[in-house]
Amino acid sequence: MSEILYDAAGFPMLRVDAIDAYIHWLPVTKIQFEYFLCDRPSSQFDQDWYNGILQLNPRVSPQQIAQKNYWESFITGIRPDEARAFADWCGEQDGAEYTLPTGPEWFKAYQILKSDPAREIAEITTEKLSDRTRKLLIRIDKAVRDRPRETLSLADQMLMRDGVMEWVATEADKRPWAAFGQPNKTFFANLYTPDSGQPQIPNDYEQRLRSHGFRLLRRSA
């Protein structure tokens, strides 16, 4: 079984055996979401909707990504149902099942990846990627590596910390969505850490949360 796969927008997903799924290498980017927008024009995701998203977290071009702004690559301010629409679209492209991870799945993947060392980005940026995607991955990787820290784990490299908050599904009926991850503190100051094993529960699902993005799982068929 291949260790790396690519989603419908050509972005890499890494296999994590412990959860029997592929997980996006990074939180979903605006470039990925724009593939969805261009393939499925709809009144729900119209220009006003996207302008609102960009107001919360502006767009940055891959060649301008740096330590001070790399979170602008990711689509945030998005609600869980909107993230699910993207997941459904991904599934329609290749017939696989794409979902938001559950809280336990996210945390399990995090723990596994936290114990693995970071990889050479060249292992991920294969010739299958578009120039733009390759540039984005390399620039983000450089921004992550430039930040002083004792060790760089694979989870750090994949921005499960120091990235954005990420929507996950829960089993609670009244609060079906929560968030794991950790936003970069310049992007969104916070004290939350995923190491607690407890997801953060938002007060209001209708409110767009600037710090909240997502990544998907691709279930193994």
Binding site: A9, G10, I31, E34, Y35, L37, C38, D39, P41, S42, S43, D46, Q47, Y50, S130, R132
Partner: peptide, 15 residues
């Protein structure tokens, strides 16, 4: 133009 306005996005078309 299309009945439903489209985003001014170009990347997916070019790529």
């Amino acid at each position: 133009p299309a009945q439903r306005p489209r985003h001014r996005l170009i990347g997916p078309i070019l790529e």
